[in-house]
Design a protein around this nucleic acid. Structure first.
Lengths: 239, 239
DNA sequence: AACTTATAAATGTATATACAATAAATGCAA
DNA sequence: TTGCATTTATTGTATATACATTTATAAGTT
């Protein structure tokens, strides 16, 4: 192996994190030592350390002085990702689907406009869907997203496609963090009919604002989840 | 300054993070450069980098190549902490209190026993409280915690004191992560009476399991929060 | 004025080295 | 066998150095 064949640290972290997934290490399994990584990739120890540090920062590993590096619990790894409805359903072993109720350009309500940091008179896409799990109503959602951010969004099929996938892969938006406000509410009207086929039931309401790496809000969304079918899982990791 | 006077990296990170709080930098304010930190504390650049990296790992700073380090949004800093009810109320500018309903040693129900990884026949403390905000009922909570973990817990005043404070400061338990399952439920009986003074209302139910650094569960708690007064805020940061 | 180029400032990556601190394994003595 | 001391393996900390990459600014050039 010549010097030019050497991999970069980020390539090495990619290889290592894939190995953790594929060879599926169990949680708390001992991981390779700094020395092993150093020799395997022909890099200095400090560089091997840096590769390990990336995996620690990502929440994949944790380290104990004098013992080594260990694979974190799945639940902690999970806390470092942002889930779409589609991914959530996949995780729970159900088929995600949508029934599109409304999809048009609108002037957003003020609460959405302010959270999306839009100027008055600017247009949003409004996406109103009933989210289905294995064909059954699971949630009722309304998404607002600025037209300027995702022009020609109407070319996509929001019944079959994932909005988060479109944002990331088609419009190259990189998610950074999201802010969810979760409350218990009574439902009525359209929401209640869609979820329960009757009036005056209850739901878990989630208000979501998703940001990219430059602190731009990508979406403002209100969702009502079926109270019997869904509960929200929140993992807080102390740093 | 002689060599022996030199501060350790962790002392330096403490100083820097306190300065961020006290001199309260606004979000996205430019922070000191590596070179400034290096000269100020008479350390090498790599060491200054490491100090900065700690602050990045803690979610306090973020860095942009070619520009410098910047102070993260409060909301992101907050996502790296675990809140007690007491701290939550403080954050919202309300006075936290409790009305103790029940406090005794019991054999825990199976769901609590399994989540606390306890053997059969082992005893738990049961703490049943109505949580008050500015004197008004805010939540109804039941906590189970193994007697073996916190012997003589009954010496403390759970009406005035914070259980999380006692865990950390009196029993030296170090929190690592917690797992919350959040759902919308109908209330009745004791819970409904305590929160709403009537039957058949709704509440935000939070099931909480708190772990220490060795993955030992410290508490299993069920809480019912007043649906009109409380909503749960969840920040997910992508790594 | 607009564009290009050079420079400086800042973080990022990589290496080499030395020693400290912790944890587990080993060996030895009572 | 138990207890203690030693060794070994491993991560943690700190320094010095060199060059790469990105960003913003300044200086020319047209």
């Amino acid at each position: 192996m010549t010097a030019k064949d050497k991999l970069t640290t980020s390539q090495i972290t990619d290889i290592l994190s894939k190995e953790i997934e594929d060879m599926d290490y169990s949680e708390n399994d001992k991981f390779a030592t700094e020395r092993e990584i150093m020799e395997r990739f022909s890099i200095s120890r400090m560089t091997a350390r840096q590769a390990l540090n990336f995996l620690v920062a990502k929440g994949i590993l944790y380290r104990i002085k004098g013992r080594g590096a260990f694979v974190n619990k799945r639940i902690i790894q999970r806390s470092h990702t942002i889930y779409s409805f589609t991914e959530l359903m996949k995780e729970r072993g159900m088929a995600a689907g949508s029934k599109l109720i409304e999809f048009k350009k609108v002037i957003p309500p003020e609460i959405a406009r302010l959270n999306l940091a839009m100027s008055e008179g600017e247009f949003c896409y409004l996406i109103k869907r009933i989210r289905l799990a294995d064909g059954e109503p699971y949630a009722y959602e309304i998404i607002y997203t600025p037209v300027s951010l995702v022009p020609n969004l109407d070319e996509y099929d929001l019944e079959k496609d994932s909005f988060y996938r479109i944002l990331q892969q088609e419009y190259h938006k990189e998610f950074s963090y999201d802010k969810k406000t979760i409350s218990a509410v009574k439902t009525d009207g359209e929401v209640s009919q869609a979820l329960y086929n009757n009036d005056h039931a209850i739901a878990l309401k989630i208000l979501d604002i998703l940001y990219d790496v430059n602190h731009n809000a990508l979406e403002y969304a209100e969702s009502w989840y079926h109270a019997e079918k869904y509960s929200y899982l929140s993992i807080s990791v102390k740093k």
